[in-house]
Each structure stands twice: as C-alpha cells, then as structure tokens.
C-alpha cells in the first residue's frame, strides 16, 4: 500500500527537507501534494485522497492552527492523521492541538529518524506501519 501525503508549509525549503526525510523512512509513497498555507491545504483535501498531513503552524493567510480547526469541523481529523512539524515550541499550544486530535508533533529541525519514529507510531495501525 502506498500513501498519499500532503505537506503544508509556507517555506519551500522546508517542504523539500520534509519530502527528502520522508523518502528516507522507507514508507511507500504515492503522490506528495504540497500547499503553502491552510487555504491551499483545504483545497487539496477537498479534491484529492490524502492519507497523512504534515503541517506547519505559523503560516500567512491561514495558519496550521486554523487548518486543524477546519479539519476538525469537517470531521477530517477522524480519518486523516496530522503530524505538526513546527519551530513553535509553545507547549501550551502543542498540548491544545493534541487534545483537538493532532496525531503527533515534531520540532524543527528534526532528524530523518525522528520523522520515521513518529510516522511508525502514527501509522502503527495502518498496514503495518513504516517499512525498511
């Protein structure tokens, strides 16, 4: 089984770093969609099949917090795991997001093995998790 992914970050270099780290996890990847803010992410989620969302928090136009709230309103969080990848280490906010249904978070900068560990945990119940 391959997974379709959505990477949401206003920084093109971070989207590349995340994409590269994912390629090192051994996960079978289908289509990797990219969005530079929450608005674009909702457009992708409304038109494409996505298995996992990787979302930044601080973005112009629509932040990751607002995106996650919209996903919760639309019951998308029940089916699509969201992994927050952020420089914002505010523990209060991260705890709130986990209460709201976010699957996991990673602080930037992260190591590929950190991403692999988080993805294994999040996908643990889906098709045997991460391979390789």
């Amino acid at each position: 089984m391959s997974y379709n992914l959505l990477i949401v970050d206003d920084s093109p270099i971070t989207r590349k770093v995340v994409k590269r780290a994912i390629s090192m996890t051994g996960l079978e990847v289908g289509t990797v969609h990219e969005a530079q803010d929450g608005v674009e992410a909702l457009e992708v989620l409304g038109s494409q099949w996505v298995d996992i969302v990787f979302a930044d928090l601080n973005m112009p136009r629509m932040s990751g917090v607002e995106l996650i709230a919209k996903m919760a309103e639309g019951h998308l969080l029940e089916d699509i795991p969201v992994i927050v990848i952020t420089s914002d280490r505010n523990q209060l906010r991260l705890a709130e997001l986990q209460d709201r249904g976010v699957s996991a978070h990673l602080n930037k900068p992260f190591r590929p093995e950190d991403l692999r560990e988080v993805m294994s945990r999040v996908l643990g119940n889906k098709a045997g998790g991460v391979h390789g």
Partner: peptide, 16 residues
C-alpha cells in the same frame, strides 16, 4: 528561504 527558516527555528528554540 533558508535564512528565514533558520531564524524561525532559532527563535522558537530561544523562546522555549
């Protein structure tokens, strides 16, 4: 973008 992103990470770690 690399400089913007590095300052983002440095600021987050400092504020924490």
């Amino acid at each position: 973008d690399s400089l913007r992103e590095l300052l983002n990470m440095i600021s987050g770690a400092t504020l924490e």
